[in-house]
Nucleic acid binder design. Sequence first.
DNA 1: TTGAAAGCGCTAACAG
DNA 2: CTGTTAGCGCTTTCAA
Lengths: 338, 338
Amino acid sequence: MSIARSRSVTISDVAQTAGVSRAAVSKVIRNAYGVSPAMRVRVEAAIAELGYRPSVAARALRGSSYRLALEIPWVGARFMTQIVEGAQLAVDGTPYQLVLAPAEGHAYGTLESMADGMVDGIIAIAPLTDPEWLEAFAARVPVVMIGRHDHPRGYDTVVGDDVGGANAVMDHLLGLGHRRIVHLTEPETVTAPGSGTPHSVRLQVYRDRMATAGLSDLVEVVRRDDSRAGTLAATRELLARDDRPTAIFAGHDDIAMDALAGVAAAGLTGRVAVTGYDDTDLAQHPLIDLTSVDQQGVEMGARAATMLLERLQGRTEPRRHVATATLRVRGSSGRVVS
Amino acid sequence: MSIARSRSVTISDVAQTAGVSRAAVSKVIRNAYGVSPAMRVRVEAAIAELGYRPSVAARALRGSSYRLALEIPWVGARFMTQIVEGAQLAVDGTPYQLVLAPAEGHAYGTLESMADGMVDGIIAIAPLTDPEWLEAFAARVPVVMIGRHDHPRGYDTVVGDDVGGANAVMDHLLGLGHRRIVHLTEPETVTAPGSGTPHSVRLQVYRDRMATAGLSDLVEVVRRDDSRAGTLAATRELLARDDRPTAIFAGHDDIAMDALAGVAAAGLTGRVAVTGYDDTDLAQHPLIDLTSVDQQGVEMGARAATMLLERLQGRTEPRRHVATATLRVRGSSGRVVS
DNA sequence: TTGAAAGCGCTAACAG
DNA sequence: CTGTTAGCGCTTTCAA
């Protein structure tokens, strides 16, 4: 026995029940100007009685859907949790609903799909997306980008102080006496010089600081494989060498976790310093105890959402927020052990 | 200099450019029956030339939005990563877009909001939602629920074998000689007997097995606080007692992480067995090395999405999938240490 | 095979 | 203050 899919109650039903026009109902639900208290009461009663809920599709077709999209490259990344939490915080109490859009591969498809009418604005974490394309895209729908160092005309950006953060890491490691410092980061596409991605900046700072410290010969950049297994293998190989590094500067905490796993697998726990980035909840766990850079992910998410809300209010000039980066020193990074 | 928000190209524009009717364009983009090859070519050329993309809102108003919602209670839960990954896998290659809807507090609001017109179907993880309410809800929009042990008429369910999984955990711990086994789980609301939540089942199995083993006196259930700090404090207090437990059966891996933190804080690492549930990626990390129950989260997500797709094809009789649970024994759970 | 026309549910002028 | 009306962009009979 299957249940018939019930047709949902529309604004006309409410209007009829309340004995008013549809326009009146529309005004009431939008808190628009020009409704008598009496009418408001009757309409609200009818709405409650019928359990009426406005159709998002119909609203979107006419104007706004009251939905905001947050595009994220990979749900499993711990840093995303912070961003989402912050964005949700900022959206709470507004009439907007936050929806997350996981991108499969390139972000273009997902972004366009969202812009196709489902949302009023978009927050996106898409460091590799072409700036020109984004400008054009932002002309269609309000956009705030997280984690880009560019200075766009048509959209807002929220980005961490990657120069400061990476320098803090290098200060720390060099200060501890480390020389053989390896940078374990994302694939080349994500770190291309001048690409403006956070990871390209961190890499550049690494190179610069190594050079300044007279350690250019020891510069070594290892790429994180797509698979955890690959990263592990790379780390293991690294640690098997005679001149193995004494410290690993990981591009972010998830990579650092892989590095820690590699160090543990090599039986070198505590003998190789590891630092992460993002200060995710894991970094604070006593069993991990990872030195990491806190770039206020929650705050970043909240700022991004607030900026988007501002754009929805009418702001058009671009804004930019740079989150401060603070090194949280923990047990994973100690002095050189010989 | 702000850029004017560009009006997007509509089906009429395409029709005009191609010199055909809007209906014709509609048929082409839907691959509907009754279009001559010649017309198809012209229309497709126009679509490409204009960069036309159908409006989701307009489509949704007339029929389907080609969007599927996956409601999740808390993005930070590691188990969710598996579910999302699976669901995405199952949706890839279909014309559907998966969007995630984080619920703030009760799921009702989020579920209704999604049903208000922007999605064709909903997958939800909402163990506490009232069955009656859900039946009514499922009459409005196709629904698949994850993690419910009820046998509904109007929606599908995907659930783990919590009886089997919890028994495997108890087999393991009792077999290792543990007697003082504490169950660390979610707040009471989530584990109420007969509520049919996974955690209520796991708790019941714990009680039953303790009783069967003649350990009823030692039954002890500790609740996870909302905050990580709270759980930590509870764990610490537990471990400070003279008759401290020798084993902690945690309701899921995230709780187990807190337990491990508490054990570490008490300086008892390796001396108190800890088991988790869900076998998240963390459990496999060498520094965590957590014994956990693999209930095939990815498979569960994929099944749920597939079932929803089937409902969208027209199936109305309810289906139910029970995922097998397998204990993965790791280093976190050893014999009793005195 | 193709197109004309009628809406889907809502909002926004504009009249009354 | 209230109601009428004209669409938003698309799908879908129904004729031609």
